[in-house]
Amino acid sequence: MTIQINNDFPHGTISAREIEILKLISLGYSSKEIAGILFISKLTVETHRRNMVKRMGFRNAYQLVVWAFKERVFA
């Protein structure tokens, strides 16, 4: 399965790096796998995930993924 990032989505609420991480979360990758793909630490991935969930007022990453598809973050 592939997910394309919608380049028309306004990046005011979420950064480009966060979108990359969110895309990989949506594809089912673990924090450790995402860290390896993006060449960052697992803690950095978990921090991005936690910050996105908190900023958007959600309770978990599942709600974040649902929001991303509803808001057409991905094409």
Results as ranks from 00 to 15, higher is better:
residue 51 N to I: 11
residue 41 S to K: 08
residue 41 S to N: 12
residue 40 I to F: 10
residue 24 L to E: 06
residue 46 E to I: 15
residue 59 R to H: 12
residue 68 A to G: 08
residue 37 I to N: 04
residue 17 R to W: 00
residue 44 T to F: 14
residue 40 I to P: 11
residue 9 F to W: 12
residue 20 E to T: 05
residue 30 S to Q: 05
residue 74 F to H: 00
residue 11 H to A: 06
residue 66 V to A: 05
residue 24 L to N: 06
residue 19 I to Q: 01
residue 16 A to F: 13
residue 53 V to I: 10
residue 25 I to D: 00
residue 58 F to E: 03
residue 2 T to F: 13
residue 7 N to C: 03
residue 61 A to V: 08
residue 39 F to R: 02
residue 67 W to L: 11
residue 18 E to K: 15
residue 35 A to M: 07
residue 10 P to Y: 05
residue 21 I to Y: 02
residue 49 R to V: 06
residue 55 R to V: 00
residue 27 L to K: 12
residue 5 I to Y: 02
residue 45 V to T: 08
residue 55 R to Q: 10
residue 65 V to R: 07
residue 44 T to H: 15
residue 15 S to N: 04
residue 3 I to K: 02
residue 75 A to K: 14
residue 40 I to C: 15
residue 40 I to D: 08
residue 50 R to M: 10
residue 59 R to E: 08
residue 17 R to C: 01
residue 54 K to E: 05
residue 55 R to A: 09
residue 7 N to F: 04
residue 16 A to V: 12
residue 21 I to C: 14
residue 30 S to Y: 09
residue 13 T to I: 14
residue 50 R to H: 13
residue 57 G to V: 10
residue 9 F to V: 05
residue 34 I to A: 09
residue 59 R to S: 12
residue 72 R to I: 05
residue 11 H to N: 09
residue 72 R to S: 14
residue 50 R to D: 04
residue 16 A to K: 12
residue 36 G to K: 14
residue 61 A to K: 15
residue 71 E to P: 10
residue 29 Y to I: 00
residue 52 M to H: 10
residue 53 V to L: 07
residue 36 G to C: 06
residue 72 R to P: 05
residue 64 L to G: 08
residue 51 N to P: 11
residue 10 P to W: 04
residue 39 F to T: 04
residue 49 R to K: 15
residue 38 L to A: 08
residue 21 I to F: 02
residue 13 T to E: 14
residue 36 G to A: 04
residue 14 I to P: 00
residue 2 T to W: 12
residue 1 M to S: 07
residue 63 Q to F: 03
residue 26 S to V: 03
residue 68 A to W: 04
residue 65 V to A: 13
